Amino acid sequence: MERPKVLPEVNLTSMMEFFLVGFSDITNLQMFLFVLFFFVYVFILLGNGVIILITRIDKALQTPMYFFLRNLSLLEMCYVSVTIPKMLINLWTQKRNISLFKCATQMCFVLILAGTECLLLAVMAYDRYVAICNPLHYPLVMNHRLCIQLVIGSWIIGIPIQIGETYQIFSLPFCGSNQINHFFCDIPPVLKLACGNTFMNEMLVYIDGMLFITVPFLFILGSYSKVISTILKLPSATSRAKAFSTCSSHLMVVALFYGSGIITYFQPNSKHSSRKDKFFSLFYTIVVPIFNPIIYTLRNKDVMVALKKLLP
């Protein structure tokens, strides 16, 4: 009796193409979603572009706080440009395929930019801490050289780590379904498609999350606990209100970004729900970049004054 042939295990990674499911389950709203996300993308680019422009040309806004805000706006523009254009193409053409290399590239840039935002928000919290808790030393501490170093560090410190994590994930063998139930190549839905034991990869995700989410978030909480304590000791109600107003915008962005990021990346792979992942991913990839120009303009008198000067 002839023995059945045993096929060798094949690592399908090298010849695989993924399909981004996105919002294909809402078949009757594809064009509506295309128009909606198109105008959202344009608004994000224009809104954050205006912030970059006015904080660059207005002399009253040449302070460390607005220097960091300008970098945050640039970061948000880069962030949405990594995810939304591909989503728009998929909605328009209904061709949802993405090569393995493009998927890995998209994931890598998303991770790098998300890590940068975590660090930059922590830097902005430190800036508010020095400005409110040590106002007399603020010009000396937050000098131009330190501001540039903090921003450069925020942009580049995570690059080798995120490249390494992306490489580890895409070194896994992928087999079976190649449908990523998401609108971009995010870690949880991609790991679901991997064969074999992904425990080490999940541990790397947690370690990465500790470094770029938990540590900066705890630093922000520590900074603002001291800031709020200092504000409450101010004798004048007007001074307290003014101090709170300079912090509230930043705190709103922190709450939205970190809240959605913690829920998304600090769950076991088996506990992830595709619908829930998409919902929370919308917050840190689209909703936060939308609210950034709104929060920092409508709630900031200095920016509104500069904006009125810019408009004819």
Rank of each mutant, 00 (worst) to 15 (best):
T105V: 12
Y167H: 14
V303H: 03
V21D: 12
T83D: 07
V190R: 08
D58P: 01
C133R: 08
N181Q: 06
R3S: 11
T166P: 11
T55L: 03
T116D: 00
G115S: 14
I294K: 02
G222Y: 07
R128D: 00
I294M: 02
P188C: 09
F174Q: 12
S24N: 09
P189A: 12
L111K: 12
G49M: 12
I207W: 10
S236M: 14
T116E: 04
L36K: 07
I220W: 00
C103L: 07
I262Q: 09
S177F: 14
C118R: 10
S154R: 03
V42W: 05
R145T: 08
D127R: 02
M31F: 13
H272C: 13
G158R: 01
T63N: 03
L193C: 03
L61V: 01
P64F: 00
Q62P: 04
L311C: 12
V253A: 09
K86Y: 13
T55M: 04
I89F: 13
Y206C: 04
M304L: 14
N90K: 08
I231G: 11
T238Y: 11
G153R: 02
V227F: 06
T264D: 11
I169V: 13
N201E: 02
V215I: 13
I89R: 13
V287P: 02
L45S: 07
F183H: 01
T285L: 06
